[in-house]
Design a protein around this nucleic acid. Structure first.
Length: 668
RNA sequence: GCUGGCGUAGCUCAAUCGGUAGAGCACCUGUUUUGUAAACAGGCGGUUAGGGGUUCAAGUCCCCUCGCUAGCUCCA
């Protein structure tokens, strides 16, 4: 989620300055809803002195920038209220974010409770009612340090110290001087006065590390949001409620798609209906693999750890790998142990033995594919070789990060590796992107964010290789004409990656597809192909996945369609509802006939009344309901009710079969 | 892993100050014979996540473990 900057400073380099408010007033543009103005693309507040001949645009409360100003100001008011109610609490940073704002506090004696939020909110309303102006004041570094040192605001002192020497330091104050004034070091801008903050809501509390580093102390974060009007706030809260209804964890339960059980934490059980959707996803890419020239392999699940030493996983991915032990390995380890117990800690020796000998569940398919490539002599004529694998992967994820199907400990990727020459890389990237967009279109995704993740600190391979591979990916994206952002340091340990992100119902972004350039694994596995010149050459390797994890893509897709699967992928395409048991025989014959035509059809022959059957079928979101009663039995029809188009009336069975078969074809 | 919150029937949720564990839905059995968003009656279903403690008495208070959850950190 993008964040705006924290409270820092920026520099003014202008002469003949007058307060911005005066200038706006002179031009007759000072309306009630003007919260700031924009000069040279930078948002400044109405108190900031600017050049008297500056050109500007007013920023209104309802503008995107204006809303951010309101939220940032609200964060100040919240910090004010918190410090008043909880003396001794230190302030840190408090930016505006996409849907609101937060402020991180260092509060002695534990966090804030839900009741605290209500109290804080009330105190904030008092500050708003006071309607005191926000005042900007430029101070020297030493003045700022002296002020915050005196206030014992150690985090602010640290922030001030980290501000570059050539930047101006500004303070923002609100409240009444000498009475209830509150001050923060901040670059602004802010609304003219606290009275501009009309619709404020504190939403949640959470822990957050100082400066986002888990080695630092944990602070108490309060999230809130603010809008230009009460109506806009209400609207936003309503949208959040609706989004919760789409949460894939809720839909998964309601639609009998999957569940979790503590016997296998963060590892989903896919029920028949969920497994159906999952399998159709696999079918869909398999079909494209034919067209795009992939071959599929099946590889082992568990490996001698030597494999992962060769691949580098043991050094770089160890903490995410599950290990298997057997009685034999354990006994060997204990025997080694007893023999050498004099010169080493027995527990450590056993641990070492297990680390060296207990098999590991694969967290990725790439090492297997390297083994396959190296299994016999390869020719340049075979390249590019695209090898796909739907193998099940296991990765141990720390407790706090797992999330429904989106982040699990066992999953399957629509994984494939492309072994090719360096020259073939750009065209392979282009080809992959074409494949990826075809799939995303089939699943009706229109918004996809692309990021180029570059070399991380913890990595293997030379800098020259990284330069080359990062450039190759950048060129591939540029050739495809796709806009992307750079995520510095976010690459995999073996190579940079292009990440394709989509968003869940609650606007959390998830990486799905990816393509990664890897010059390292072929090196480590000493892979070679025989070139035209009869000599050995090292191939390079691309890791790529369109869905990424099938589980994650399923979760995002489920939320995207709200459980209303289109007919081609819906577990049940139609359900026959009998009006009474007088029509049961006809109803059963309809089910049979439709199934014989290849349609996925169920019947509801319970003693419920029709209305109840319809209600049940609707909550299950089946694409079609086929009502059958004596009239239909007489005429040989079904009365069709479409989930998406409403009642379609009675039609001959053959007509419905043709219609649904046409809709059952997977998208192209 | 960290900081909060939560965990009661398959699901959604009740249970006052610590005082007999309950409802609706689902499921089963009947009755009803039904034409486009919930017919009626009865029944089944629980070691209140697990373990320990305080107490005459614990779903409720305390401790530990497990799981879920919102963030943080990490990641497909």
């Amino acid at each position: 989620m993008p964040r705006t900057g924290h409270c820092g400073t920026w520099r003014l380099v202008m002469a003949n300055r007058i307060p911005a408010r005066e200038l706006v007033k002179q031009k007759g543009q000072l309306a009630d809803d003007v919260v700031a103005l924009k000069v040279d693309g930078r948002v400044v507040d109405l108190h900031t002195p600017i050049a008297e001949d500056a050109t500007f645009e007013v920023v209104r409360a309802t503008d995107k920038d204006g809303v951010q100003v309101i939220r940032h100001s609200t964060a100040h008011v919240m910090a004010d209220a918190v410090q008043r109610l909880f003396p001794g609490t230190k302030v840190t940073i408090g930016p505006a974010i996409e849907d609101g704002f937060y402020y991180d506090f260092d509060k002695p004696g534990g966090g804030f409770s839900e009741e605290d939020l209500a109290t804080i909110e009330k105190a904030m309303l008092d500050v708003v009612a006071g309607n005191t102006p926000f005042r900007r004041e430029v101070v020297s570094r030493n003045e700022a340090l002296a002020l915050f040192e005196k206030m014992n605001e150690s985090f602010k002192v640290e922030i001030i110290r980290s501000i570059p020497e050539d930047e101006e330091i500004s303070l923002y104050k609100h409240g009444t001087a000498g009475k209830d004034e509150w001050v923060d070091v901040c670059e602004g801008p802010h609304v003219p006065s606290t009275g501009f903050l009309r619709a404020v809501k504190l939403t949640s509390v959470a822990g957050a590390y100082w400066r986002g580093d888990e080695r630092n102390p944990m602070l108490q974060r309060i999230y809130g949001t603010a809008f230009p009007s009460k109506e806009a706030l209400e609207e936003h809260l309503k949208l959040i409620e609706e989004a919760k209804q789409r949460d894939h964890r809720k839909l998964g339960k309601e639609l009998d798609l999957f569940f979790f059980d503590p016997v296998a934490p963060a590892m989903p059980f896919l029920l028949p209906r969920g497994a159906y959707v999952y399998n159709r996803m696999v079918d869909y890419v398999r079909k494209l693999y034919v067209e795009y020239g992939y071959e599929e392999v099946i590889t082992p699940q568990a490996f001698d750890p030597k494999l992962f030493r060769t691949s580098g996983h043991l050094g770089n991915y160890n903490e995410n790998m599950y290990r298997l032990w057997t009685e034999d390995v354990l006994e060997e380890g204990q025997a080694v142990d007893a023999k050498d117990a004099k010169d080493a800690d027995p527990a450590k020796k056993l641990a070492k033995h297990l680390q060296d000998h207990s098999f590991a569940l694969k967290p990725m398919n790439c090492p297997s594919h390297c083994v396959i490539f190296g299994q016999r002599k390869r020719s340049y004529r075979e390249l590019p070789w695209r090898v796909a694998d739907f193998g099940r992967l296991h990765r141990y994820e720390r407790g706090g990060v797992v999330h429904g199907l989106s982040r699990v400990r066992t999953f399957c990727q629509d994984d494939a590796h492309v072994f090719c020459t360096r020259d073939q890389v750009p065209q392979e990237i282009e080809k992959f992107i074409k494949l990826l967009y075809a799939v995303y279109k089939a699943f009706a995704f229109d918004r996809i964010d692309i990021k180029l993740a570059t070399r991380p600190d913890k990595r293997i391979g030379s800098d020259a290789d990284w330069d080359m591979s990062e450039n190759a990916l950048r060129e591939g994206l540029e050739r495809a004409g796709l806009p992307f952002e750079i995520s510095p340091g976010e690459g995999a340990f073996y190579g940079p990656k292009v990440e394709f992100h989509v968003y869940d119902a609650l606007k959390r972004g998830w990486q799905t597809g990816t393509i990664q350039y890897d010059p390292n694994l072929p090196e480590r596995f000493e892979l070679a192909y025989t070139g035209e010149d009869g000599k050995d050459h090292r191939p390079v390797m691309l890791h790529r996945a369109v869905f990424g994890s099938l589980e994650r893509f399923f979760s995002v897709y489920l939320e995207h369609c709200g459980g209303n699967f289109p007919a081609w992928i819906a577990p049940t395409q139609a359900i026959v509802l009998t009006v009474s048991d007088k029509s049961e025989a006809y109803g059963r014959s309809v089910v049979e006939e439709l199934r014989a035509s290849g349609l996925r059809v169920e019947g509801d022959f319970s003693a419920d009344k029709l209305g109840a059957k319809i209600r049940a079928a609707r909550t299950f979101r089946h694409p079609y309901m086929l009502v059958v009663g004596p009239k239909d039995a007489e005429a040989g029809t079904v009365s069709v009710r479409s989930r998406d188009a409403g009642e379609l009336g009675a039609m001959p069975r053959a007509e419905f079969v043709a219609k649904l078969l046409a809709e059952s074809a997977s998208p192209r």
